[in-house]
Design a protein around this nucleic acid. Structure first.
Lengths: 235, 235
DNA sequence: ATGGGAAAGATTGCATACCAATCTCAAAAG
DNA sequence: CTTTTGAGATTGGTATGCAATCTTTCCCAT
């Protein structure tokens, strides 16, 4: 068992990624302490981790809230993803073995099936995961961790907008990126990575999605049940 | 004033970057609490921040230590810098105004003077800072923060080895990177960024530098004096 | 003497209790 | 209707205690 605060921050992270905790949601220390049945000190530690990850914003003497990225910040996150993946592309091209390319192609296949079956939820996840795999192939855990953090943050953005993706086009992008990289046409691949992310952002009909968010207790209930039986599971 | 634990983590970060606290150094909670005159709870929070930043490693029930990156991790950090800057290069080329290019050239000038004056300490700092400026010109605070974190971690590596840089070559690299980017020759610039970082790593004569490290109290004394008079400054 | 093991001591991880500073929000005053 | 005020809630931080674990030291058997 790791640190209690580490576990808790991971659980809250999951809840944010799954959009059970949405941007702006107040994360009261006492409420979280009750939910997880730990002391406030541990909750504070978890909140610090989350704040360092950018998922939570702490305002002095006001408390912690699920981050609500500004429009500018949203752009910066996607540009950061672009740059990181462009760098990965530069390293991957010409240095990756057949196994790597086929792993990527296999993944595109999977997402293709998900789209055909109309499983948008899954297609969405797989769409993100393509980029994760791409970065994983760089075999650099430092880059992987930075990239994963950015991906986590994009979940915040999805909570803020109605996403309407052109899966067909995005899938084709993935496919073409693989082809270009394998062919050693790095510059063209990097250009496509750029426009690809711009198309993803375009898929966000940037409007205030004032979706009602659940209470902290409600949002976290399935997770705490998962890990450890809470004291008073008033389901 | 921000959080106490935030301040403290920043002070410790400075001490690590300035190589007053070297890899492997034990960061005892009580010792730090005494030095900064705060409770252990605050110190723990600071240590969590530092651990998230990669500068400190916490081992359960053993305590926190200044991180001692493995050889592999060192490589990964420099490769991560490479990829990030390659991505920045892709974004910068053709989109940066004259002001930006001249800022970079001015900086190279500064470092050139430092080298001529034999001020290795300064030349070293400016050498790192060139890359910081490059990334800053991307005008992306997310990327900047990730890059800054990597730069901080390179300080750990400098503590571990004897660095013997060929400043002349490295400076020429910087100069040429600017030229290539301004000329729109991105691929060539990215290639040079790669070899540049490889040359930096080559400058590390990877040997266990078992330099004697100071005590925590000793190492942090000048910083705490800076911020707040400690209780018992037994210099 | 020397390697292994047990006991003592130190440190971490966490809980509880407490307090000052600050924010929130609603009621009272103008 | 706006401003002020004050009670209550929340945060940031301290102090203390305790169980679990790690470290060190000392003792004993080989």
């Amino acid at each position: 068992m790791g640190n209690r605060s580490d576990e808790i921050s991971k659980v809250i992270t999951r809840a944010i990624i799954n959009r059970r905790l949405t941007p702006g949601c107040k994360l009261s220390e006492q409420a979280l302490a009750d939910v997880f049945n730990v002391s406030r000190a541990v909750v504070r530690q978890a909140l610090i981790r989350l704040a360092d990850d950018g998922l939570v914003t702490v305002e002095r003497h006001r408390g912690a809230f699920v981050s609500r990225p500004s429009h500018r910040e949203a752009m910066e996150i996607y540009d950061a993803l672009t740059m990181l993946e462009q760098g990965v592309a530069a390293q991957l091209s010409g240095r990756l073995d057949q196994r790597g390319w086929s792993e990527l192609r296999h993944h595109v296949e999977l997402q293709h099936k998900a789209v055909e079956e109309g499983n948008d939820e899954l297609a969405d996840q797989l769409g993100s995961h393509f980029h994760v795999i791409l970065v994983k192939l760089s075999r650099n855990t430092v880059v992987q961790e930075m990239h994963a953090q950015l991906i986590r943050r994009t979940a915040l953005l999805r909570s803020l907008v109605d996403s309407r993706f052109d899966y067909c086009g995005l899938l084709h992008d993935h496919s073409e990126i693989i082809d270009l990289l394998e062919a050693g046409r790095v510059a063209k691949a990097q250009e496509l990575i750029d426009t690809h992310h711009r198309n993803v952002v375009k898929g966000y009909l940037m409007g205030e999605n004032t979706e009602q968010s659940m209470s902290v207790h409600e949002a976290l209930e399935p997770y705490v049940n998962d890990a450890k039986t809470p004291v008073n599971a008033t389901s």
